[in-house]
């Protein structure tokens, strides 16, 4: 009798350990994407095309196109951005060289200098990163199953996460709804001030029935495990006070190229045009 029991215990125990091992060994799209993100962060230089679009019922509210060149070995970066809302267009260039950021806006003769040495966000947080990574790994356990991977002929991997309606975790949905409502209220308050420096999007004043309808993330990871292309699309629906319904669509598109081959040439900035720019203003 006892021998039979021991046999059952032995067999089921082995099977259980085996299944745990094989579940843990599953390499998912999530792991692939996470590794690619890490690898991409270690790249010495890259050129990124960054496009952002906000549409309201298929009408563009704000669009921005940026080219971001970064060289972390020589600590030189350059960003050129073109921003457009329904009425205005503006362009600006930013450079990071000699440890400072310089900002030039089209049509202005001054160069703004931002002192980044006082930035408190530069402390080393490797340990914290590991903890946060563990936390995210466990919390997104069920979402990870929704990530699909497809291999392209050229060896690149396409990673796709598409969540609609009920698939979006309730807490995430509630939280983003809260943030949108808050943002709308803040916009109401700051409207009167009117800053001429940045172009702003005039968001519709969503009042009720706000919900996140879709979140879609796609990424293409190349053979060297760098992220080649990435899009994030978020659709939020809601209604104004007068029951006009809106469908806001946010699209972020990122194209990366020239990993470790980007050369950023520092620009000449004449010192007499430089103005110190304070964040706390």
């Amino acid at each position: 009798m006892n021998k039979k029991l021991l046999a059952v215990i032995g067999i089921s125990g082995t099977l259980m350990l085996g299944s745990v091992y094989s579940i843990s060994a599953n390499t998912s799209g999530y792991d692939l994407y996470k590794d690619a993100l890490k690898k991409t962060h270690t790249a010495e230089s890259a050129t990124l095309n960054f496009n952002l679009n906000i549409e309201d019922n298929n009408k563009s509210l704000l669009s921005s196109q940026s080219i971001f060149k970064s060289d972390s070995v020589n600590q030189v970066n350059s960003i050129s951005t073109r921003l457009a809302n329904e009425t205005d267009v503006s362009s600006m260039n930013m450079y990071k060289q000699d440890g400072n950021w310089y900002l030039m806006k089209d049509g202005l003769d001054t160069v703004y200098k931002m002192d980044t040495s006082k930035n408190p966000h530069h402390s080393n947080t490797a340990e914290l990163k590991d903890d946060v990574e563990n936390l995210i790994d466990v919390m997104t356990k069920n979402l990870q199953q929704q990530i699909t991977v497809a291999e392209k002929k050229n060896g690149n991997h396409l990673i796709d996460l598409d969540l609609t309606g009920k698939e979006i975790p309730l807490s995430a949905n509630a939280l983003s709804t809260l943030m949108i409502k808050h943002a709308v209220m803040l916009q109401d308050k700051s409207d009167s001030k009117g800053s001429d420096f940045h172009i702003k999007a005039k968001l519709p004043e969503l009042d009720h029935d706000i919900t996140v309808k879709q979140v879609k993330l796609t990424a293409e990871v190349n053979k060297d495990n760098y992220i080649k292309q990435q899009t994030v699309k978020v659709i939020v629906t809601g209604k104004e006070k007068q029951d006009t319904s809106h469908e806001l669509e946010l699209t972020i598109n990122l194209d990366a190229s020239d990993y470790n081959q980007t050369i950023v040439t520092p620009v000449g900035i004449s010192a007499d045009k430089v103005v110190e720019f304070n964040h706390g203003k």
Binding site: G165, K166, I168, L170, N173, A174, T177, L178, K181, L206, D207, H208, D209, I210, T211, T237, G238
Partner: peptide, 11 residues
């Protein structure tokens, strides 16, 4: 002002 999917709450 939130329109959370009913199904989501059920889950």
């Amino acid at each position: 002002w939130m329109a959370l999917p009913a199904e989501n709450i059920n889950m």
